[in-house]
Simulated scan of single mutants.
Amino acid sequence: MLCPQVAIEQAKGAGHSTQDELQLLTAHGLLHLLGFDHAEPDEEREMFGLQRDILIGFAHSERRR
């Protein structure tokens, strides 16, 4: 679940749009549900790399609309 109010505040703090924050939270949460974690540096590199790839995919699909 995503809380829009939290996403709004986090987006403000990060300096990007609420839509960007919701996409980031979606990608991050899905990766956790798939068993990824970021407790260790190697896990963090893998998970955040996948997260970046997902967000790039989101951006590409938005441009095609």
Rank of each mutant, 00 (worst) to 15 (best):
F58I: 11
M47T: 12
D42K: 02
E21G: 01
A7R: 02
G29A: 11
Q51G: 05
S17Q: 02
R45Q: 04
L33A: 08
Q51K: 09
F36W: 07
G35N: 01
H38R: 03
R52E: 06
G35K: 02
D53F: 05
Q51P: 03
H60Q: 15
C3Y: 04
T26F: 14
D20I: 10
Q23C: 13
A39L: 11
L2C: 10
A27K: 03
A59Q: 01
I56V: 15
G35T: 06
H28F: 08
Q5S: 00
M1F: 02
E9T: 08
I56L: 15
Q5Y: 01
L50N: 06
R63L: 13
H28Q: 14
V6N: 04
G13Y: 11
I8H: 12
H60K: 15
D37L: 08
H38M: 08
F58M: 10
E21H: 05
H32A: 05
T26W: 14
D53C: 07
F58E: 05
D42P: 03
Q51N: 10
V6K: 06
L25K: 10
E21I: 04
F48V: 13
S61N: 11
F48C: 11
L22M: 14
A39G: 13
G15K: 01
A14G: 06
D20F: 12
H16Q: 10
